[in-house]
Design a protein around this nucleic acid. Structure first.
Lengths: 216, 216
DNA sequence: ATAATAATTTAGATTTGCCTAAAATTATAT
DNA sequence: ATATAATTTTAGGCAAATCTAAATTATTAT
């Protein structure tokens, strides 16, 4: 496998993260990477030339088979490092993300496979996300977005896709974590906020927050 | 402490490595980093502006106090990762260097200090080099190069800086290893080779080989 | 259906880090 | 001491990744 720049890897990972079946848009990717749409277009041309994405001007992007393989490799590195940081170095779960973000770009194949072995081949990272194996296989997470959960259907929080400390602080405050059981009680069309019931309490969830919570 | 690029860190580390009391030259640094003298000059201007080195055109460079502090921090990261790779991931001693070369640029302070703690505050890396502590202190065995050892001064081999198998084969053949006692008996200006006496024998050492042997 | 709006791309600059070739400076040898 | 050689710096360019502003294409709202 070839060698990719940190920037290329970050774009590929972001496209993978935003992938919901449909093509990813320039603006969405720019927002995700805190960069400008013009920069995204520049990079998309390069990634297309390297056959990592399908792309026609004005019609968004999707990962090719090669692109998805690379994305899964980066996700593997990221989640193994997160596991290492939490399990071995005793970082708290909200500290691991930013550090893993840097470590994930160290590309040595042997390093990652030996780290995996050292950790005992963990299957989930500290946020509950499955870790791809050395061949790139990943457990299919049959989770749906909280915004798509029907009213009064019991579910369990299985994943939060944004992992900024701001997001995690908010989740902590609302006492929501991986494994929390909940039901959506009401949906307000005005601001698309939700009212949800957890074991103890009934609370409001903004649209943005709901979009980043996934449940099974 | 500010944030430095991978390139800046590599230059600082190389100057630290080449430091023998006198100023480091442009050509020596270019050779060490496998780059061109013109590129070195470019970077030296930047490092001077950042007050990491002392530098006047045509007169070489030396680390400032800040520069030395940064160098020791990078050395600390490098050697802790080397220890981790050898001790925990079971890499062999000749594999650790290249991987540590990448990991050393992950700058998170907490990561390195927690790694240090996890490893049990090791004092030496797998090559026998001392590891600076969290405050930047390093054990003082300022060893000198065999080329700088005065005639007839008894010394002990403490370190070899090149670790290629070719080098080690040659050392093995000449029966020189870490701990070998020796004295320099003659220096030949013609090819800068040395004649040295070990316990058993008197042998010739080429300039290149001598440059890579360090003694106390 | 078309005009207004939003999204996207292009054009042209900037910064970092590197290069080659030429000029300037320092070191060396006779 | 001075010519020659070696070293170092300058000048000018290139590629990657980013930006702003302007132009282009797609979407939407009436």
């Amino acid at each position: 496998m070839l060698n990719y720049s940190v920037s290329e890897e970050n774009y590929i990972k972001a496209i993978y993260r935003l992938d919901r079946g449909k093509a990813v848009s320039t603006n969405a990717l720019a927002a995700e990477l805190k960069t400008k749409p013009a920069s995204v277009t520049d990079m998309m041309k390069k990634l297309k030339a390297k056959k990592l994405i399908h792309y026609e001007a004005y019609h968004g992007f999707q990962l090719t088979y090669e692109g998805r393989k690379l994305a899964l490799l980066i996700v593997r590195r990221h989640r193994l490092w997160e596991y290492f940081l939490a399990e071995k170095l005793k970082f708290t779960w909200d500290e691991v993300h930013d550090v893993a973000e840097e470590l994930e770009h160290v590309g040595d194949k042997k390093l990652i496979d030996k780290l995996d072995e050292f950790l005992g081949f963990p299957r989930y990272d500290p946020h509950g996300d499955p870790i791809p194996d050395a061949s790139g296989k990943i457990e299919a997470p049959r989770q749906i977005c909280l915004t798509d959960l029907p009213l009064n259907r019991p579910a369990v929080v299985s994943h939060v896709s944004d992992q900024s400390s701001e997001m995690l602080e908010l989740l902590g405050h609302k006492k929501i974590a991986i494994g929390t059981r909940l039901e959506v009680k009401k949906k307000f069309s005005y601001d698309k906020s939700l009212e949800i019931k957890t074991g103890q309490q009934t609370i409001a969830i903004s649209e943005l927050l709901a979009q980043n919570i996934f449940v099974k």
